Computed example of a mutant assay.
Amino acid sequence: MRVDPYSLARSALAGAAAGIFASFAMNQFQAVVSNPGSSSGRGGDPATVKAAERLVGHGIEEREKGRAGEAVHYGFGAALGMAYGAAAEIEPWITAGFGLPYGSAVAVVADEALVPATKLSGLPWASPPETHAYAILSHLVFGAALEAARRVVLRVV
């Protein structure tokens, strides 16, 4: 199967834009449903702030931590959206389940495996079950919002 480079780029960029929207939707969901556990699992700053500090190579001033964490959150969401958009162009079955399987995969791979493996949070088994449920629900919102926004963006551009 040959994929047109223009279509692939268009889909990837639509996915990136959709990823930013999906990150916003996830934030709104989390604002309504408060996290029952620590956002970092290790005390202190959220994983997004810890990641931002690693990216810049030093600690971030307290007044800048919120913005730095949001930049990581939205940047990661855009990257995930770009990957999803490109994958959907190559293999349309990726969109089956309206983004929910993708959101679930992001929750498991990123939150449950990569974030603890990079020591941005504590070990998964150290967190209560409701924290895991909160993370999975948040990423299901991300996945569904990602697919909805991707479809809208592709219709517009």
Results as ranks from 00 to 15, higher is better:
Ser11Arg: 06
Ala71Leu: 14
Ile136Val: 15
Phe29Ser: 12
Arg155Asp: 12
Ala22Arg: 02
Pro36Ala: 12
Gly103Glu: 04
Leu13Thr: 10
Trp125Cys: 04
Arg2Gln: 15
Gly85His: 00
Ala105Gln: 03
Phe24Met: 09
Val3Cys: 06
Glu112Val: 08
Phe76Gly: 07
Ile136Lys: 05
Met82Asn: 11
Val115Glu: 01
Val56Thr: 14
Pro5Ala: 07
Tyr84Ile: 02
Leu120Pro: 02
Ala110Phe: 12
Val109Ala: 13
Arg54Phe: 02
Pro128Tyr: 07
Val108Tyr: 09
Ile60Gly: 05
Ile90Val: 15
Ala96Val: 15
Glu130Ala: 13
Ala88Ile: 09
Arg155Tyr: 03
Phe29Glu: 12
Gly57Asn: 13
Gly37Trp: 08
Pro128Ser: 11
Tyr134Lys: 04
Ser121Thr: 14
Ala79Gln: 01
Leu55Ile: 15
Lys119Val: 10
Thr118Arg: 11
Gly66Ser: 11
Ala107Arg: 06
Ala135Gly: 00
Ala105Gly: 12
Ala86Pro: 14
Ile136Phe: 14
Glu147Pro: 00
Phe142Asn: 07
Pro116Trp: 06
Ala51Ile: 15
Gln30His: 09
Pro124Ile: 08
Arg63Ser: 05
Leu80Ser: 12
Val156Ser: 08
Ile60His: 02
Ser104Asp: 01
Ala78Phe: 02
Val157Tyr: 13
Glu64Ile: 01
Met26Ile: 07
